[in-house]
Design a protein around this nucleic acid. Structure first.
Lengths: 153, 153
DNA sequence: CATATACCCATTGACGCCCATATAATCCCA
DNA sequence: TGGGATTATATGGGCGTCAATGGGTATATG
């Protein structure tokens, strides 16, 4: 499986370390399995994360913008300066930077939610509430959900 | 990681030295890891910096502008004639030339902002404000920022 | 000779690496 | 197929190393 799926609830220890779920670690390319990138989610009080390979793709896209335009700086600043890289130790743990923990309201525990090509880290209660809420929104349009689930390739 | 990412706030000591963030040092080619180039940003009151290898890339970009346009001369002059090279000492510190500190309003502390293939140095408060401003501009077009982050190859 | 800058050494706190344990999952063989 | 044994995962903690910062002194350069 090369996608981030399922959800996990892990603890932050005294040193601030938290385990990246084992199944998530296996999604990371064997080459850079000891480094992930984190950034504030744009649309929710959560942290998003993924392997460094994804960052390189983003870099390429930005590089294709007109270098002398204002957009270039806006994207470059909002993305590169907001992204942090963190090292995953041999036990599979990493540090969530203080600023990001603050943004997501995370203290002693965090919830990991697989999102396919990336994952989200939430304060557990907020994360669960968010899952409920988004499911409710989907059910309001039952039809579209049913279609999504039953549609054959 | 071979990109300048994240942001750092470091102090300038009595001798005028400031640490180039360790993660930035690692982006510099192992060969010329003790030398960086600095120049005034054209678009903001900040200093831009990168490894010496990046010079070629800058030249290329300027070359892509229309040679007979005013822009060409302006960019060419503004950038090339303003570039200074600085040495990074064994502890990873360097001196920001007086003229550049003045241009950016930097006094006792400076903020480093990763920008992918280069980085910016700001007076901390102005730098933070700039980040906010550019994020606001982008959020007006939520779709574009989201696309940049989530688009699949 | 005077000022600026490079080199060397020191300090402090944060982080990485290593080792340890408990619980859970998997295996393997009788 | 059952049950003990092996492996993996999440978690805890010691300790050495590195990064950021401070300062003394040699050296260069005008």
């Amino acid at each position: 499986m090369d996608l981030f799926v399922s959800k996990y609830f892990n603890k932050i220890d005294k040193k601030g370390r938290i385990s990246l779920p084992s199944s998530f670690r296996n999604v990371l390319p064997k080459a850079n399995r000891n480094e992930i990138i984190l950034y504030k989610s744009i649309k929710s009080p959560s942290i998003e994360g993924c392997g460094v390979g994804r960052l390189k793709e983003i870099a390429k896209r930005i590089n294709n913008l007109d270098f002398f335009s204002e957009d270039y700086d806006d994207f470059s600043t909002s993305i590169f300066s907001e992204i942090v890289t963190t090292n995953v130790d041999k036990e599979g743990r990493f540090l969530i930077p203080e600023a990001l923990k603050l943004y997501a309201g995370i203290k002693t525990e965090a919830a990991f939610f697989g999102q396919g090509h990336f994952f989200q880290i939430w304060e557990p209660k907020q994360g669960l509430k968010n899952t409920e809420d988004s499911r409710k929104r989907l059910l309001k349009e039952k039809k579209s959900l049913r279609m999504m689930l039953t549609q054959q390739k």
